[in-house]
Write a protein that binds this DNA or RNA. Sequence first.
DNA 1: AATCGTTATATCTTTGCTTATATAACGAAA
DNA 2: TTTCGTTATATAAGCAAAGATATAACGATT
Lengths: 110, 110
Amino acid sequence: MYQIKSRIWLENENGIFLGEGRIQLLKAIQTEGSLSKAAKSLKMSYKKAWNLIDAINKSSIKPIVTKSTGGNGGGGTLVTDYGKLKIEQFDILKKNCWEFMNSQKDLFKD
Amino acid sequence: MYQIKSRIWLENENGIFLGEGRIQLLKAIQTEGSLSKAAKSLKMSYKKAWNLIDAINKSSIKPIVTKSTGGNGGGGTLVTDYGKLKIEQFDILKKNCWEFMNSQKDLFKD
DNA sequence: AATCGTTATATCTTTGCTTATATAACGAAA
DNA sequence: TTTCGTTATATAAGCAAAGATATAACGATT
């Protein structure tokens, strides 16, 4: 028997907005408080993480993260309320999608 | 407003079975009658096409294509009835999936 | 002023994927 | 037996994505 797998993401005219990798990175930023620590926790290069966040910002209507540089502790990156909302919405979509895929699996019973 | 995009595929314990690219290749084989012509029509290298078909065969329970080599015309590749069934099933899954994704788009209206 | 860890950015290297190329085996038909 | 276009396979070349490395700018705290 075959298993149905899927990958979902959001786009607009400015390119890809959110995907599963980006959501994972945003969640890591929420727990770590900085982009560099988040990248490290995911064993991702800082450059890749920075590029992802940059792409998110460029395709988003409203800010997803606020970044501060300098100061005691060096600064950090925080997820905005709008960003948190998008994370929640994406999680709901993913859950709904998983349930839908599960309902389709008997399509391939033969 | 964001657009929901997705990519679906089928797996079993032997690896990936069918995805959108493999379905496209199988359809090209149906119309062309050979793997090399199908690859050419999709502007895909023969090796890549061969690797895809090899992976399909290795993960499938029953043969998806029958290949003959030599003979007048050099041989060719044909999609089996089982393969045709899988193509139809995948198309139905894709259509259902598209409708489902469409039903989810107002999740991100804010 | 000095310190600190962060964001931001450029450049170089590397690695893995993809294509390109070449060659052998095949077997029905002429 | 020769010819043909295919499948099958190995190897080399090319290229684009990713990683590694280095460095500057920042600004609150001490």
